[in-house]
Amino acid sequence: MLLHIPSIRVIDRDFNLKAEIDDYESLQFTRRFYRAGEFEMHIALHKQGVDQLHKERIIVVDNKMHKAGIIQYREIGQNDQGVEVLVIKGPTLGGILDRRVTVTDSFDRVRGPAETVMKHYVDNHLINSVNPQRRIPFLVNAPDLGRGKVTPWQTRFEPLNMVTQEIAEWCDIGWHIKLDYNIKKWVFDVLPGRNLTAEQRLLPPVIFSRDFDNIESQSFLDSDQQFKNVGYAGGQGEYEDRLIQMVGAGIGADRREVFLDCSSAENAAELVEEGNQKLSTQKTIVSYEGRILNTGSFVYEVDWDLGDIVTMKNGSWGVTLNDRITEVKEIYEPESKIDISLGEEVPTITQAIKQLTSAVKRSD
């Protein structure tokens, strides 16, 4: 998919413009729905603006407020042609959540729409923390519109970025941080996404298929390797005095059981809720990846975008998937491209261990 090569603005935390770069070797910018994305940029050392690419500076792609990242990595080396090149990497602005854990004397419990719950934790640990040293003055929450599935949540001494990711996945709603030049703030907000599948009739459908010549390099994954459908949620207490509640359902050989540590739950009802949340992470992984071709039928960020639910088809594979776009990777090199991922993210080894191992939490 041919895209125009975007310019890169470099700003500091006070929104002061430090450089504008139009000539670089390559840029990959990845946006994700449930968690922060990342970027990687290569630029020859002799080019204009390189001297302003310092750590903690912000790059803004094509002056779009939702496409910005924090420089956290710098490496100088030589490419295959012997040219000295600077490589910079970092997360999108949502990576700022990785700098906090949910510090609290007792479990921080909240119930409400997913948007309310996530903004509660962002406010408590980044914006208006009890400890002034934990506050980030340039970060604010967008107005809370109460969007997303109503859910209870609780956390204590967990990475804040993991908490928001788990809430987002459980409630199927995205989030991001974007820039607001008018108030000179970073703004945390949710991303509901749109239903653009072939079955709905409210909006023009978006269908990616080789039949329409708008996708290539496809891959499809359907895996039950980590799937569990019955959980025994363990609450407070020890040994035979520990409260256990069963969640989920399954019969015979199709029943796949797992023990879920939910020792922070205060009562049976809370134990069931937390058990269902944890069991939901051990689901069938269905994902579809493809490279989008520029046929003019669907325009990126106009007809479809990150978080939208679209239809992906491959007739020769017998596969039709209606699912959410959870990742978009923009690649700007001599030939620009765009890759998308639908469905669940394949867990890393660390994530799989976390899902299969009981988390150790101190009770109240």
Rank of each mutant, 00 (worst) to 15 (best):
K149L: 12
D123Q: 14
I59S: 07
A198M: 05
I177T: 11
E199N: 12
R256M: 13
M65A: 13
T164V: 15
S336P: 09
G231Y: 02
G234F: 08
D23I: 09
F15C: 08
V60E: 10
A36I: 00
I244M: 14
N276P: 02
L203E: 13
A253G: 05
G90K: 01
H42E: 11
S280E: 09
G296A: 06
I331T: 15
T281C: 04
L126R: 06
R324T: 15
M118R: 08
V50P: 01
D303R: 00
I177D: 10
L279M: 13
Q28H: 01
R99V: 00
L279E: 10
V286M: 06
G252H: 05
Q218L: 11
V310K: 02
I76L: 12
G290K: 00
E333K: 14
G174F: 07
V110D: 01
E274H: 06
P334E: 13
A249H: 11
F29I: 04
I244G: 07
M162N: 08
E289A: 12
R324K: 15
E266S: 14
V190F: 01
V103Q: 07
A68Q: 03
D224L: 15
V60L: 09
Q81E: 14
I136S: 03
D213R: 11
D123P: 00
I96L: 10
V187W: 03
P192F: 06
F39N: 01
D172F: 00
Q355H: 04
Y288W: 12
K354Q: 10
G296D: 06
F220Q: 08
S106E: 10
G69H: 01
K89E: 07
E199V: 13
V140H: 01
H54W: 02
V150T: 14
R156Y: 00
F212A: 13
G237W: 02
G193A: 13
S358N: 10
E344M: 07
